[in-house]
Design a protein around this nucleic acid. Structure first.
Lengths: 196, 196
DNA sequence: GTCTATAATCAGATAGAC
DNA sequence: GTCTATCTGATTATAGAC
């Protein structure tokens, strides 16, 4: 638990290589495959370097998540500013690797207190930004926000693709085309056809 | 991979004890905690018995899933025959342990081919039964099934609680009350207040 | 069917040389 | 920063006694 020494610069090249390797491994084989030895192997380095840069494996996993979360939040902020925020958000979350990554994180977070807190914090941050934009645009679109509160719309626009790709990853497809059609028809009625 | 010998009776008492222990462990600490030693410890037995009854750990995990799937399918069949199938299904899937179990299975299935196939098979079976019932009752309720196909309704009624509890497990709550309200209002408009 | 004993492998982590 | 070497403990799985 203690940190006897810490030297690694946060933007060191090797650090980035290790993060990249860990992330790819997590995506391809799940968090359980992210061991010091496997990460180093994929990065073409020695396993001891993982401990030099991150001390514990939990620290590495946490760093992988933080980097993605930061990047993802910027991408979402840009999407929410577009002239068609509903379509833009829908497009972001209709991204299979993103969903696989998210599922792995949730499963892992379930028994890592630190990651759990971090995940909750960032997820609420993502949703708050979505809700802020939705509150504005749904009103403009003339939506009855009593029947469909902005935060509920945000939940659906992000949660539905999540389940969709989680299921797709294991080979389930029943109802997928239909539910996509339902959501997209609704978005189309509000924002028209997607422009880009 | 081979099975040099197999003796275990499928209804042996020890076998059931091991399955129970494995399932509890999976729920409490995730599939990664389901090791021969920990399962045996929780069951008050020796770890070698796990191999006697299941040969490999993958076989044990598969058996845990099969048992629950069978039991769950019967429960769902009963719910779908109720006078308020929408409410009944909603109640079944609004079950936190069920969702945690499901998430662990999806994460695990992502890198276990056999479990993946089994999970896909059973999930499609669950959804087909839901769709069959929904096709009938949505028509009776006068729903425009062009805008909301029965299979899409089934996807939402099961997928929304899934995301809900997955998020709840890590401490996310934004929008939860609102989305539950949206779904329940819709169900209430179709089936009235829940009778039981 | 349950036990003891054990093989073979892999994990996280640290010490200390260079 | 990166290396070699190493400690400690956990894992799956099997052999063979009772």
């Amino acid at each position: 638990m203690a940190s006897p020494r810490r030297i690694a610069a946060p933007d060191a090249k090797t650090r980035t290589v290790l993060l990249d390797a860990a992330e790819r491994l997590m995506l391809e084989e799940g968090w359980a495959a992210v061991t010091g030895r496997r990460v180093a192997e994929k990065a073409g380095l020695r396993s001891q370097l993982v401990h030099y840069y991150f001390h514990t494996m939990d620290d590495l996993l946490l760093a992988v998540f933080r980097r993605r979360a930061e990047q993802g939040f910027k991408g979402q902020a840009k999407a929410l500013k577009s002239p068609q925020p509903l379509w833009a958000l829908w497009r972001i979350f209709n991204n299979p690797p993103f969903s696989v990554f998210t599922m792995e994180l949730f499963a892992l977070a379930n028994h890592r207190a630190k990651l759990r807190a971090e995940l909750a914090f960032h997820a609420e941050r993502f949703r708050a930004a979505q809700t802020e934009t939705f509150t504005k645009v749904l009103k403009e679109y003339g939506v009855d926000t009593h029947r469909m509160p902005p935060v509920a719309a945000a939940f659906l626009m992000t949660g539905v693709p999540g389940v969709l790709f989680m299921e797709q990853a294991v080979g389930i497809s029943a109802g997928h085309a239909e539910i996509v059609e339902v959501v997209e028809r609704y978005v189309r009625e509000l924002e028209g056809d997607p422009l880009t």
